[in-house]
Design a protein around this nucleic acid. Structure first.
Lengths: 249, 249
DNA sequence: TGACAATGGCATGACCTTAGACCTTTAACA
DNA sequence: TGTTAAAGGTCTAAGGTCATGCCATTGTCA
């Protein structure tokens, strides 16, 4: 029995090879930039909104203030935020969503595998999140968050705004599960898919279809019908995935 | 409009507060130790199995070899692995699972919130994973992995071995989804719940019940019946969760 | 038996991250 | 109108992490 056999070939070893994953994403600094930039692009912090104070943000992200400041400096250089000093000052979002040039989403081809995987993962996570959300007793605030988010999607006038509102709705649904791990999973999925979703040709018929599904999902969650909510989200994921798989070829 | 209102109170801001998460788990070194120790305790690397070579492991975990070596040194100190030099050498697992003293799982109370959350998250992720697994065309090897893992659970003679085999079965199911993100999610869930599951009173009736459910799940996956597979896993998660919630009080 | 190759062991210098204290700016408040 | 509090801006010392190259050990194979 040589070293290779010792390490490979048994069922349990196959699992060993599968569970190991990168222990973290590069440097803390890059991680901060990515997370903040994603939150802004998804619209979790929308145009004009203020980020929390540096000290608070640093603590919440588990990073030193120095590192966080470097990240913010990066965002500032990229023109996504503006910072003012003094009491009442802070860092505010100066980024407005834009429609990418058609077919001009760079690097989508490189990440083909990852994108296809995130479609699968989305199919796993988002319907499950709906099920959990519908099974909870929601507060008035939570219901309001859902209906407001839904209304914002319908009210969006340009594709870029629509895309952000759509992300926000999905994050809102995740957030009413009150499950941090579920919220994180949905956030990750939305971050992965954002660029791709943005590249979907925005046809009137797609938007209408999508809107009907969103409404069905939210209504089922508020009504507490977990099975119906899940099924509606499954349909929504499947339909969107079909479009996206077409785009990826 | 003061700073607080600028940052709080709007729907979109609420989301901003919810999506920010720690950018990473402390030091790379600790992350490595934790991930490797978990993989070993879950049985992804079972007794006598060799870990991959340091250079390969370091690359896969996205960490320098120096850091990885520190982590391995930690495991060695803890008596979980043994290392030999030279060609054909390497690091092999010298850990055998043990049953914790009843009621003696330290720190379970401290993590109460996290544990309850992981039960919710599990309910989201594992049924979804079953659905995906059943929807794929499985190779003979993959089917074999499932049936072998199932047989190992039934064959386990002591509770500790049984617990490991159970984890391995769940990881095996995740692995046949062929979705890295899904695998990671299930791994995370199993790692979170491992200590708690280990503390479940091992009653004959529980094991029988669990065994029937496992068999139903695997059969449905192999038969390609996605809905049935998901429903079976939902039932399994719900039943286990009920036991665990009871333990947590 | 001798060369080779695969593996762990070690050392160095550059860079990143942290924690904490302190400074500067500016709006809000008394 | 002064005082204060809340925010960003800066500095430093200590330690963590990395990439890289080389060394030491030992099984394999010609």
């Amino acid at each position: 029995m040589n070293a290779v056999n010792k390490a490979r070939g048994t069922a349990s070893d196959r699992l060993g090879n599968v569970v190991l994953r990168p222990v973290r994403g590069h440097h803390a600094f890059e991680g901060c930039v990515e997370q903040l930039a994603t939150a802004i692009r998804l619209g979790a912090f929308s145009y004009g909104a203020a980020l929390p104070p540096e000290r608070e943000l640093a603590e919440r992200m588990g990073v030193s203030r120095a590192t966080l400041r470097e990240a913010i400096a990066g965002l500032r250089t990229a023109g996504m935020v503006r910072t003012t000093r003094g009491r009442g000052g802070g860092t505010v979002v100066s980024y407005r969503p834009a429609i990418p040039a058609l077919g001009g989403s760079p690097g989508i081809a490189d990440r083909r595998e990852q994108l296809l995987d995130s479609l699968v993962y989305r199919r796993v996570v988002e319907p499950g999140a709906c099920y959990v959300a519908a099974g909870r007793k929601l507060s008035a605030t939570e219901k309001m968050l859902l209906t407001t988010s839904l209304a914002e999607v319908d009210a969006a006038e340009d594709p870029a705004t629509h895309r952000q509102a759509d992300s926000r709705l999905h994050l809102a649904i995740a957030s009413v599960t009150a499950s941090p791990m579920t919220i994180e999973a949905v956030t990750e999925v939305q971050a992965c898919l954002h660029d791709m979703l943005q590249a979907i040709p925005v046809l009137e018929v797609n938007i209408d279809h999508s809107s009907r599904q969103h409404r069905a999902i939210v209504e089922a969650i508020i009504a507490g019908d977990a099975t119906k909510a899940r099924r509606a989200m499954e349909q929504h994921c499947d339909d969107t995935a079909a479009l996206l798989r077409g785009l990826l070829g």
